[in-house]
């Protein structure tokens, strides 16, 4: 078997694939955070909990109502998106304009509530979810084995990321959003319903998280605590990329997934720490982040 730097090629590509998948999740989550940050200027600490809610909803919808995976890919994000809109409308709106520290603490409290309630209802051991039959198995590419579902996750995550980028950068709705990011008061003056835009934006960012959760359900163990660790990693990703640009969030997310995968191949003990170490280096060398504009 051929080797690269003392590692079998199949292992290397296998880890790269896993890295790409994780990167897809990081990209989806940091994209959602960036969209919300752009307009609301807040960091959603409940993002991890809402990602978890998306995964839990996918499993629960199947178990109780028999809703298929395909339908859940739409239904779960919409349901969780509604939760997001409710959080924005009933809670975040009440403290709009105050120090951003408060919105951060508020969403942290919301995350604790969501996680605590679901832990009580479903325990911490996790729920089982089997993927649709279409995705069982995989194909042999000669140098590695590619499970269908993993290929699907990478493709769909990239598509959704690209679609979001396209919507924000190239469409009229996206133009509203960008204008709101620049000066929401002026927008209001032009007769655009800014509060509605804010609610929808928050809901959309949350939907991205829930969609990532639904995608994750068949491959990761679905537990009420699955969101808290990945959220902290995504925070590091966001710090590395800077939240200035949509494409920056996507690229950094995927890049960090790959870096993590490579570390897992060549020096496994550091794999869970590597993204945080990259963050430290970036902060020391280029404090505003790879794609950041603000200080």
């Amino acid at each position: 078997m051929s080797m690269i730097l003392g590692v079998p090629v199949a292992v290397l590509f296998g880890q790269l694939l896993l890295g790409l998948i994780n990167g897809g999740f990081y990209a989806l989550l940091s994209l959602g955070l960036a969209v919300i940050f752009g307009l609301l200027k807040i960091i959603n600490f409940a993002h991890g909990a809402l990602y978890m809610l998306g995964a839990m909803a996918t499993v629960i919808l199947f178990d109780t109502l028999g809703i298929s995976y395909w339908a859940a890919l739409f239904v779960a994000p919409i349901l969780v998106g509604c939760v997001g809109v409710a959080i924005e409308y009933f809670l975040l709106r009440k403290i709009a304009g105050q120090d951003h520290i408060y919105s951060l603490l508020l969403t942290f409290g919301v995350a604790l509530i969501i996680q605590g309630v679901l832990t009580n209802m479903y325990g911490v051991s996790g729920l089982r979810y089997s993927m649709p039959d279409v995705f069982k198995g995989g194909m042999n590419l000669g140098f590695m084995f590619l499970p269908y579902y993993r290929a699907w996750v990478i493709v769909i995550a990239l598509l959704v990321c690209f679609g979001t980028w396209f919507m924000i950068e190239k469409t009229k709705l996206g133009a509203y959003l960008r204008a709101g990011t620049e000066d929401s008061q002026l927008m209001q003056g032009f007769g655009i319903n800014v509060p509605l835009l804010v609610s929808l934006t928050f809901g959309f960012g949350v939907m991205l998280a829930a969609f990532a959760g639904a995608l994750a359900a068949p491959i990761y163990s679905v537990t009420p605590v699955m969101g808290s660790h990945i959220l902290i990693v995504v925070f590091a990703v966001v710090v590395i990329g800077g939240m200035g640009s949509i494409s920056g969030a996507i690229i950094t997310g995927i890049l960090m997934g790959v870096v993590e995968g490579l570390t897992k191949t060549f020096y496994p003990p550091a794999s869970s720490a590597v993204i945080f170490l990259v963050m430290v280096v970036v902060l020391l060398v280029r404090p505003s982040g790879l794609f950041g504009k603000e200080a």
Binding site: I232, V233, V238, F276, L283
Partner: peptide
Amino acid sequence: VAIRRQGIYFAMITLALSQL
């Protein structure tokens, strides 16, 4: 490390460092 960014970034960085 954390002093290099402000506000909510400061919070996120300290959280990431503590996870490290």
